[in-house]
Write a protein that binds this DNA or RNA. Sequence first.
DNA 1: ACCTGAACACCGTTCAAGT
DNA 2: ACCTGAACACCGTTCAAGT
Lengths: 196, 196
Amino acid sequence: MGLADDDGVASLSLRRLAALLHVTPMALYRHVKDKDDLLDGLVQRLLSEVDLAGDDGADLRSIVSAVLRVLRQHPTLAEIVPTRSMRTRAGIDLAEKVVGLLREEGHSPVDAAQLSIFLLDAVIGLVTRQPGELAVADPTLRRAMLAEKRKTLQDLEPEAYPNLTTSAEFFLGVPDEETYFSNGLAILLNATRPIR
Amino acid sequence: MGLADDDGVASLSLRRLAALLHVTPMALYRHVKDKDDLLDGLVQRLLSEVDLAGDDGADLRSIVSAVLRVLRQHPTLAEIVPTRSMRTRAGIDLAEKVVGLLREEGHSPVDAAQLSIFLLDAVIGLVTRQPGELAVADPTLRRAMLAEKRKTLQDLEPEAYPNLTTSAEFFLGVPDEETYFSNGLAILLNATRPIR
DNA sequence: ACCTGAACACCGTTCAAGT
DNA sequence: ACCTGAACACCGTTCAAGT
């Protein structure tokens, strides 16, 4: 987990992990079936930090924002959660809770299931797609990529791209992180309101 | 693109592509800066299929569903779009259009920008996270993973997991694809409605 | 302009063997 | 039970060299 947090999930390899533990790569296979199993374990560990029995599970808003809180502490790990959550106990417990709360709001079994997938996916999107936060560990490369993006946006002719030039600052980095995330939460929860 | 469509974007390597073209891996570097550049090119090609000037750009619903239509033809490629869209001309044009339409609906520059990122991210989520559609190319492995998921869901005790057992069928595969996607679109567009 | 050959520094994983 | 050594089949990428 530390490895992923520090250098990004992309650079988390069995070989690097083994080196960190002063052990050969093959030694890990005694503790983990394969790399997928390792990643599943990380997701389990992450999602188990959400305390469904306590305040986190009070209502839809508090549970989604609890997930957000946990993800923000491990932004690089966030991206591996969506496809793996249901492969872990903690993910299944979370889904049970969220589907249940959606049912209580009057959604059908199918709608509640679809909305639960949407909610988890979208709250992760808030973290992984936060403007200005590229998932690149190397700080000099990061800066270079952001500078490149700044240049592309600044080079847009305002006549052809009036809206992007007006909103350019936001795409390069949110003005305020807390506002960004609370807005994001509002958008997500808004999506669960009945349409008709 | 064919390589990614057939075997998944994970198995798209410069070396495999080179072999397919009967050429050494190094020959590709004359046409592409590196692998990132290749993937950016794929996203450009994909997103340029959305015809912003025509009917696709009429309103928010038609543009988002146009993106969905394109993504559904290349489901495995969908996952690389979010982080790369703004690195391509087509992605920038798409963003300009979407932000513009959101501004017309009365959203502020910052809100419109955040919502545009959300919309593109979430419509991609509909494709990449479609229940029953694991992004695994190998058909026998696919079946095995789905069978495993079926087993986990069926083994849940109904007393402890009443909601997941009720919605289990959906998590294993959507009852009707068209309903799934039109519901998904409705959820997304619902999120853009004013909150207050 | 376009391609090749050889090499480097990485991956995940299997298999047999050690203590 | 836990770890090692050697090997296999892959990666992306650099550098020098060919036509």
